[in-house]
Write a protein that binds this DNA or RNA. Structure first.
Lengths: 341, 341
DNA sequence: GGGTTTGCTGTGCACGATCACAGCATGGCG
DNA sequence: CGCCATGCTGTGATCGTGCACAGCAAACCC
């Protein structure tokens, strides 16, 4: 039984047909759907499949169906940042597992260099994957645009900018998450609430700021522009932002920070300025990244449902591959209360 | 030019042949190697390829060659731990990129549940990938054994246990890394050097401990078993280990810890016990993970060349797919000196 | 009983590439 | 001149499927 390391030629549909005493067509029908097959024949075929250990040759199938039954997971942006982000890891893992239940392999595609971008675009537009799960930060990405034009089913993670409506996306409800956090800060009696926004050329950055302003307006609290500064999600920009806020509005009693990483920087700056947290200034983050747990004090933050996001991305993509129209899915966030508020 | 979202049928080798005024065979020859083709014909074919935007249909090619020109990246063990480990991310990224330069897609395979394991085994043994890059902690894994028996080219990350010699592996030189660190501690004048080992059912754990003992023996320093405790690479086990060491050998003046994560725990325990670092106790880690930089004081540690490891894994795997014999590659580590020693 | 529907089955073709083979010049050599 | 080697090219067979189609028996309806 040992074939000495050589890979034996796998059984074909023909072998199964012979074994079961039926024709190739019947085996094929059993494999796909099982309609128009007599119970006796179906049983014989299944027995033959088990006996021979037959597995369909996906290349042959793809050749004729035109589908590849595989999906690309495309990461376009600076990859260091994403690979270091545990949320990205949850996303990647979730997508892989969700696809696995459909027997669809995930191809990991990293578009870093220009060369890689070209290669990947060619690979995808040549039809070697049926669809693409797209992760990129400011996703008005040229590669995404190209894929969209080529008619490749596409599902983005987070609301893409600049792309038409033919691309689906799944995102957490940034605006609502921001609203929850600011409401929480208001409920603590804070009224001079600052904000360090994300980059305002990204939907996330815009939405979180919008949520902040909405809640203040609803509560009848004046939106003081001196309490609004913007960052780029980096820790350093959080520290700089907090310094500016302290200078412009020394009476600030809370800050809503649009990412946990920036919030770490904010904590540093506030402590340097001698403010106690949360007594003098309450600090709320966004993302529930490990940074939130690593921070001292531990950060109150907004959790995005990354496990559900991955599941939804896969669901929407498969639907779109199946011919359905693009869709947008917005998932609710959750306030995680810890020590910083 | 806009085809309204429909995917147009890609050009085939036939289209290219017609465009170039040659036969399919000639086009095929240009595509693979270009031998026995006149310069004029080759030029005409290349022009036609550029003009038509032709990309080879991998399914058709695979059907006849029997190769899939794709590779699986298989993770068998508790996935949380790996996905949280930045080194794993570097490895995954490195493998993907190295494969990309060969135009070979990487399929991410996560064998968590029993169902997934079966599915993946079937997928691989059916020949849907040409080879497998294997990552698992204690890799006497049944799935690996099955693949090895089926003759699937396999390259493990780290020395596998229990598998025969038909499986290649690439690993950092654990023993030598440990030797470097312990030598470094000796060079600081320390003589009562403790060790918190990794799990002793893994080659890495065993090797690092062996290196520790070797150097002490060479230096004529007695190996005191009270200075040896073992952990499981987790932060908590590092903390517990340090506590045990302090109790068993209060005169300890240095610790070699087999992972940075455990070393973080060691630092916590030592500080709690009032030891100054590095004045009273020098601490050396292993891995050079971000934990090493996040620690206070920053950890002196052993860097494993993860970028080179991924490149070598891909190189060895492709060689083995090409028919070469399995190989073992051991790569040198590097001592990174920081504040904790 | 003739015609139609229904359920099931087998067969040939197509998918798009590779590969072995045969064919055709051309040129060198004895 | 005959022969063979060399360089290049085209053709048909082939890989393992799915699909359209035809065939066939049984049942059903009028």
């Amino acid at each position: 039984m040992n074939n000495a390391g050589g890979r034996r030629r796998p059984p074909t549909i023909h072998d199964v047909a012979r074994e079961a005493g039926v024709s190739r067509g019947t085996v094929s029908r059993v494999l796909n759907g099982g309609h128009y097959v007599s119970p006796a024949a179906a049983e014989a075929v299944n027995a033959a499949i088990r006996k021979t250990g037959y597995v369909v040759n996906r290349h042959a199938r793809s050749l004729i169906t035109g589908r590849s039954d595989s999906v690309g997971f495309l990461l376009t942006e600076p990859q260091e940042r994403f690979f270091e982000d545990p949320n990205f890891n949850v996303l990647l893992r979730g997508c892989t597992q969700a696809l696995a239940t459909h027997d669809i392999p995930l191809l990991l595609m990293l578009a870093g260099t220009e060369d890689e971008r070209r290669r990947i675009t060619r690979y995808i537009t040549a039809g070697h994957v049926d669809g693409v799960l797209l992760v990129s930060s400011h996703s008005g990405d040229p590669i995404a645009e190209e894929l969209r034009e080529a008619g490749v089913p596409l599902v983005a993670c987070g609301k893409p900018i600049g792309l038409g409506s033919r691309v689906s996306y799944v995102a957490a409800d940034d605006r609502d998450g921001a609203r929850d956090m600011v409401r929480h800060l208001l409920s603590l009696g804070r009224r001079r609430i600052g904000v360090v926004t994300g980059p305002l050329d990204t939907p996330g950055g815009v939405e979180r700021l919008a949520g902040y302003k909405e809640v203040l307006a609803e509560a009848g609290v004046e939106v003081d522009e001196r309490l609004v500064v913007s960052g780029d999600y980096s820790r350093a920009s959080g520290e700089a932002g907090a310094d500016r806020l302290l200078a412009q509005a020394p009476d600030m009693d809370a800050v809503f920070v649009a990412s946990d990483l920036m919030a770490q920087g904010v904590l540093t700056a506030l402590e340097r300025a001698g403010r106690r947290i949360p007594e003098d200034v309450a600090v709320g983050g966004f993302d529930d990244s490990p940074a939130a747990l690593a921070a001292r004090p531990e950060l109150t933050t907004i959790r995005q449902p990354w496990d559900r996001i991955s599941a939804e991305m896969v669901r929407v993509l498969l639907a779109q591959i199946g011919g359905e129209d693009p869709a947008a899915v917005i998932l609710p966030t959750e306030l995680v209360k810890r020590e910083s508020t």
